[in-house]
Simulated scan of single mutants.
Amino acid sequence: MDQSLVANKTIIGRVKSIVGRDSKLGKALGGLEKLQEAKFISKHFSEFLEPVVAQSENTRTESFNIRHKVYCEELEFEPLKNNCLETDEFDKFSSPCLIRHKGSGHYAGTVRLVRPQIENQLLPIEKYCINSITHETLNPRNFARKDICEISRLAVPLEFRKRQMDRFSGAATGVINEHTYSENELRCFPFIAIGLYFSAAALVMHNNIKHTYVMMEPRLARSMRFVGIQFEQVGPVIDYHGRRAPYYINPSLLYANLRPSFKIMLKNIQHQVEKYPRD
């Protein structure tokens, strides 16, 4: 880790121990500590990881395989497939994105952007959860098909969700090989989900899509606020693969609240995504 960040964390930690972590000053220092961490990760994210728009058969297969590992093998939301590829009807009009670990070439996560083009193509949220959307003006049915999309099937393999402290927990739990990934690289991995959302957002803007929807757990939406991603909840929490609610966002809402350090991260990801031709 950057030595200046280590020094700052040490000083902040000492002051927090003196004034008390739950005091106003202690909480403020805790927030400063998190912000410094975020700036560090934003700066170094692109050093270890890069977005990939899955436009080839090989990269799409990689995306489907990661989804199978997470949604079929680990979470058991979907049945196991003989070909180890998790796919559905929406993939015919979807654009998958991946995050690739530069050092190993392994893929650290995937997400897809469902992009209907004609009237009979529905978003997953429309087909399965349309009654959960109670915000009348932001109902996807109000907009042209080409102007809406849905972020779905975000998946991060277990290997990239383990921290350095878990290295001895055993291969069955998806342990990271300490000789493969550095300490700095491991610090980036909890932000892979943010990188995936930013990749999807970059693809949205690259293709001039106006309205984006996502079904997610409220706690995930709250965690996204840490970096300033303010999804607007457009309906109540329902039971859909766990407790989830429908959310909405557009490019203006995304930029309005995004923290400066993560704006840099988004800009870097946008620059890389824009190298790919529009679908």
Rank of each mutant, 00 (worst) to 15 (best):
M1E: 09
S4M: 10
N8Q: 14
T10K: 14
G13R: 05
G13H: 03
S17W: 09
V19A: 14
V19Y: 05
R21N: 14
D22A: 13
K24T: 12
K24A: 15
G26C: 05
G26I: 01
E33G: 05
L35W: 05
L35S: 10
A38S: 12
K43I: 09
K43M: 13
P51I: 04
V53G: 05
V53H: 09
A54M: 06
N58P: 02
T61P: 02
T61A: 14
S63N: 10
R67Y: 05
R67W: 03
K69G: 11
K69T: 11
K69W: 04
V70L: 01
E74C: 06
L75D: 05
E76P: 04
E78N: 09
P79D: 06
L80M: 10
K81H: 11
K81A: 12
N82H: 13
N83T: 09
L85F: 09
T87Y: 02
F93D: 02
S95I: 15
P96G: 05
C97P: 01
C97L: 15
L98K: 04
L98T: 04
H101I: 03
Y107V: 12
A108T: 03
G109K: 03
T110N: 07
V111W: 00
R115I: 07
R115C: 07
P116W: 02
Q121L: 09
L123G: 02
P124L: 05
C129S: 12
S132C: 09
T134D: 06
T134F: 01
H135I: 09
E136L: 11
L138M: 13
R141C: 13
D147I: 07
C149P: 00
I151S: 01
I151M: 03
S152T: 12
R153E: 01
L154G: 01
E159F: 03
D166P: 00
F168T: 13
F168M: 11
S169V: 09
S169D: 13
G170N: 08
G170W: 00
A172G: 09
G174R: 02
H179K: 14
T180Y: 05
T180G: 02
N184G: 08
L186P: 08
L186M: 15
F189W: 03
P190L: 04
F191P: 07
I192W: 00
A193V: 12
A193W: 00
G195D: 02
G195Q: 03
A200K: 02
A201P: 05
A202N: 10
L203T: 15
L203S: 15
L203K: 15
M205Y: 07
H206N: 15
K210D: 10
T212H: 03
V214P: 00
M216V: 07
M216L: 13
E217S: 08
R219F: 13
R219K: 14
A221W: 07
V227P: 00
Q230D: 04
F231V: 04
Q233L: 00
G235Y: 00
P236G: 11
P236K: 11
I238L: 05
I238M: 06
I238F: 04
H241W: 07
G242M: 08
R244T: 10
A245G: 04
N250S: 12
L253M: 14
A256F: 03
L258R: 08
R259T: 14
S261G: 06
S261Q: 05
N268E: 14
Q270D: 06
Q272Y: 09
Q272K: 15
V273M: 11
K275C: 09
R278F: 00
